[in-house]
Design a protein around this nucleic acid. Structure first.
Lengths: 236, 236
DNA sequence: CGTATTATTGACTCCATTCAAAGATAGTGG
DNA sequence: CCACTATCTTTGAATGGAGTCAATAATACG
């Protein structure tokens, strides 16, 4: 077991080009390492935070994956996003000082924390961190906009985009782009994409038959990334 | 004509509780007034910025309305949002230093500008502005999330939500909550909500017949806000 | 090994789209 | 100011993509 420490070391972290340290100098990374809380570990199904929880900071997934969930006016849950290692979360809590979504571990997961009380000082002392946080936040907004546009497209395009986008994001984080484990049920994928779980199942079969992917329960292997991408990229 | 000036006066602005000055002290407002570029005026159809334009800052609508438009992989345009006086725009450009959407005046419009080159200094000197910009950005994200969830609901709920949400936002800005002019065609409303223009037309008629609203071309009068809200609020 | 959850598959239904055609409105120039 | 044209809106009828319902099969779990 590693010795108890009250700060992380972002310099040693394999996610240093993605996570909080993105775009910062060595010195600045050292600086933020002093205030970022060390990773905590959660088991599948446990919450990083819940809707209405008081905002306590911006967080980063260190390992594992999570789902971001919000509840609508009818009481139905909606999976807004899947979070991968190195991704930041919690920006939605900056507005009213409470989180507007819940984030739940999809498997054993660890995360780091940039606590609220450090943020003011950091904004003052490390302007490049401020800029980077805006960049992260802006990136999320752009992803959300892409997702809004995607949701107007037919089911096949949505699922293809979902797989490609996961693949791209995994690749960027050093995982295999062509083989990965969906820690989501058909139900959850459907919920996220606004489709019935039966539709997801049928489309997986279709993609499988067309030899675009191989599906074995939750294990996905992409055989033909180009063709899969063409489903939502091609004109028409 | 007003004398040429190289800065605005946010203290005098009627939008001071909504726009850039939200949450700032008098002194801070004075400070940002020094760097915010005075409003420019555009005619209907003119662009505040276009996709791929170099990021030049975060902007604020001073008067009039605009539509935020992005183009998908198929070359189709999508109206992502309608922007009202006091609303900030351009956060999407912070990610890669270029705007990811176009913003187009829906009628005669004026806007102010917080230029990039001032932002670093402001982040350093006015931490509360930084926080407020994060709050604005977070608010937009939450609105986008609500919109994502909404788009999974049936057509009737989408249109009801659209009207109520516009009404709420107009009210917050001192306009009538019950009577307003939609500067959008049925086609544009449908595009925004992911509906066919015919569907929008039919639903307007339905709401009209049910005496929830009165529609006269683009002029909307909401007769029963509670019932209209109930369409997307009620369980079931 | 048995039970609960998750996934597949088929048949049927329905909401919203598409297609089509007529009607209203707004903008322009004579 | 009116006529003319382009654009936008309404309305109806037919079609279709994805949802729902239902029953079986596979997988995960204690």
């Amino acid at each position: 077991m590693t010795p108890k420490q009250n700060h992380v070391n972002c310099n040693n972290c394999s996610l240093d080009n993605i996570c909080f340290p993105r775009g910062l100098s060595q010195e600045e990374i050292h600086h933020i390492s002093q205030v970022i809380k060390p990773k905590k570990t959660l088991q599948k199904g446990e919450y990083i935070f819940r809707v209405e929880d008081k905002f306590r900071g911006v967080l980063a997934i260190k390992s594992g994956t999570a789902k971001m969930v919000a509840v609508d006016h009818h009481g139905n849950e909606h999976i807004l996003n899947i979070l991968l290692p190195g991704e930041l979360l919690g920006f939605d809590g900056l507005h009213n000082n409470k989180y507007r979504s819940s984030v739940i571990a999809l498997e054993t997961l660890s995360f780091c924390e940039l606590p609220t009380q450090s943020m003011d000082a950091l904004f003052k002392n490390i302007p490049s961190l401020t800029k980077e946080l805006f960049r992260h936040s802006s990136e999320k907004m752009n992803e959300n906009n892409d997702f809004i546009i995607l949701n107007k497209r037919p089911a096949e395009e949505r699922l293809a985009f979902f797989l490609i986008s996961l693949s791209d994001r995994l690749k960027k984080r050093g995982f295999s782009a062509s083989e990965f484990n969906l820690s989501l049920t058909r139900q959850e994928i459907g919920n996220h994409l606004g489709l019935a779980l039966e539709t997801v199942s049928r489309l997986f079969k279709k993609f499988h038959q067309e030899k675009l992917i191989q599906v074995q329960s939750k294990q996905i292997k992409i055989n033909d990334i180009a063709k899969l991408r063409a489903i939502f990229t091609d004109m028409g």
